[in-house]
């Protein structure tokens, strides 16, 4: 291995150290579980707004737990680090890529909504003649593509290897949800992401006991 490769390896290991705590897994597992609230159809349209509010509260609580975990559990054990311009550049590229993906997703949602409101457009595009099963398959695939590529991009730019697993499980869950209309797939997927996250988190706590504060030495 060349000298420069060794330095790259040191940098990569230092950067990946930030993902040793399992908090990302717990966070994303929680997000998938929160999505179950939206997928449950009990109460129909009446409780749609309440479910959305509950989902948003869930996301806020998860974000607070994640930030709190990083601040009070991870950082005191792993220490503080600021990475160089290469990582800053990658962060900026990730931001731009994510912005692009979100724009594409918004365009798909707006386009679909326009086609639903204007059936004559759908007819002129030949979309009304699509087999309903095939149509559901397309919707399921597009929904899975909403989740998968975003998570793959995050994993790639953040050097977060378990992120690829999360991307796969979450995409499969969303696909299954649309295809089978059963929120249970989201629960299974959420647990498949959450449980390894908790295991990684416990292992992290065992491997990294809290060091004494600088002032106490």
């Amino acid at each position: 291995m060349s000298d420069s490769l060794d330095l790259k390896d040191i940098e990569k290991r230092a950067f990946r150290a930030e993902h040793q705590d399992g908090l990302y897994d717990i966070y994303f597992g929680g997000v998938v579980l929160c999505m179950t609230i939206l997928a449950v159809s009990t109460g129909g349209e009446t409780y749609q707004f309440s479910r959305f509010v509950l989902y948003m509260i869930g996301l806020v609580v998860l974000s607070l737990l994640f930030q709190g975990g990083r601040k009070y559990i991870t950082t005191p054990r792993l220490g503080r680090v600021k990475f160089g311009p290469r990582r800053q550049r990658r962060k900026m590229i990730l931001f731009l890529v994510m912005a692009g993906i979100i724009l594409v997703q918004v365009a798909i949602v707006v386009g679909t909504s326009l086609l639903l409101r204007n059936p004559q457009w759908a007819i002129s595009l030949g979309l009304s003649q699509i087999n309903p099963d095939f149509e559901r398959l397309i919707v399921a695939a597009i929904s899975a593509l909403f989740v998968g590529p975003s998570m793959v991009m995050i994993s790639y730019f953040m050097d977060f290897l378990r992120g690829y697993y999360i991307a796969f499980i979450a995409s499969l869950a969303v696909f299954s949800l649309v295809w089978f209309h059963e929120p249970v797939y989201l629960v299974i997927a959420g647990m498949l992401i959450l449980i390894p996250g908790i295991v990684v988190f416990i292992r992290f706590l065992i491997q990294h006991p809290l060091p004494p504060a600088e002032g106490q030495l």
Binding site: E11, G79, R80, G84
Partner: peptide, 15 residues
């Protein structure tokens, strides 16, 4: 320290 911008004692100790 060469491959990062800055870090505290705990981080360097861990690495």
């Amino acid at each position: 320290l060469y491959v990062i911008d800055s870090a505290d004692f705990t981080f360097v100790m861990n690495q």
